[in-house]
Write a protein that binds this DNA or RNA. Structure first.
Lengths: 211, 211
DNA sequence: TACATTTTGTTGCAAATGCAACACATAATT
DNA sequence: AATTATGTGTTGCATTTGCAACAAAATGTA
């Protein structure tokens, strides 16, 4: 996964952040990230740590909208923060930068590292788009079983093995797949009984041939 | 919705397409778009007409993955064409360009219109990202009723009125929401009976107050 | 206009799912 | 180490949903 500063040396990174008038913020674990970041046209950039964008609807259902890792960007429709139904939490101590999206769009690309920055941004967005497409593919499956299998296939393909480690706990996985946790638990039991998967903690092994 | 050639005059558009080694293709209505476009790292650019990306899974469920209008781009993870489960059809006579994604990434931004092109591309991707986020929000609703209401709210917000025209027929809408068409039809009947909406052909009117 | 194709509305029914409630296990905090 | 909080597995049950099948309506085409 490409970094926003890929092929940009430290000195130029600083210049860039200065030109973009980026603001550096540091948060401790499980901290709620404030409203100033939720303004439109503001881009957050994760430097270290990790964050989650959570949506809680009126009936209390929590959904993980996005998982943010270093070099990930969020806000300004890249990841949605629209309205105040969205909350961002740090999962661990994290450092982020805040940049105005317009200042990125208006970045004059006369310097090589400006241009490199733009390319990196495009590639990251492309990567994010791919993840969203994958999520949509999972969510369009009509049964819990098929959602799980689609998700497992994607994870397995990503590591190139039949065995992979869940990046979630099971409660979060149910949120991600937008299904009831207990119903998911039941279905995973059936998948095990049918000899399709082996589950050991967060380690999943697929026993079937992918078509 | 911004156009890929926004603020780039006709002469420079041609130069740009030449520099990017873009290939022009023309298709008639309901035409299946060939495999050459489905290669990875290829970007399609819709000039005129409209297209749909359809996925049909092994059990025959069709899902509209994306709707493409002029200035929309597709392929290379921007809209997924991975594998051969995806099909693209023109919905009307359409002209598209095919561009190698790498040639975009390596575009030297020494000319003003190159830079403008890059900005436009970023904005389009941002817009596409927003649409995918909206779709994810809809799909994460757990009931057909809530999926419909979420979708109606988004459409209504987009036009800024309680009344809007569906961009789909009902069969396609069910595909888009990833629900059974007849079950959707039943739920729409209940929504009408409950006095929440009025449906006249493709014209939907919301009768409730959005929170 | 007549015919063929596609879309829509409806319904019965079986299967899948969400929900609630609970005990147990695991992890975090003091 | 003790206590608290969080995550997991399980089950009964009511509700929702998908599926199949069909007629009526709308649309497209010869």
């Amino acid at each position: 996964m490409i970094n926003l500063f890929h092929n940009i040396e430290g000195k130029n990174q600083e210049k860039l952040l200065y030109t973009l008038e980026a603001t550096r913020l540091k948060f401790s674990k499980n901290e709620y990230i404030l409203d100033k970041i939720t303004e439109k046209n503001i881009v957050g950039l994760v430097i270290t740590g990790s964050l989650q964008i959570i949506k809680t609807d009126y009936s209390g259902n929590r959904t993980i909208i996005d998982e943010l890792k270093p070099a990930d960007i969020f806000g300004s429709d890249i990841s949605p923060l629209r309205g105040n139904e969205y909350e961002i939490f740090t999962k661990e101590e994290s450092v982020i930068y805040i940049i105005d999206f317009d200042s990125i769009l208006n970045l004059s690309l006369d310097r090589h590292y400006h241009q490199q920055f733009m390319k990196n941004l495009l590639e990251i967005m492309n990567e994010k788009m791919k993840m969203k497409n994958e999520r949509i593919e999972i969510l369009t499956k009509k049964s819990i079983r098929n959602k799980l299998l689609e998700y497992f296939n994607i994870e397995s393909n990503n590591v190139g093995k039949r065995e992979f480690i869940l990046p979630f706990n099971f409660t979060e996985l149910a949120d991600f797949l937008a299904i009831d946790r207990s119903a998911m638990s039941r279905e995973i039991k059936y998948l095990k009984e049918d000899g399709l998967i082996v589950v050991k903690g967060k380690r999943i092994t697929l026993l079937y041939d992918k078509y």
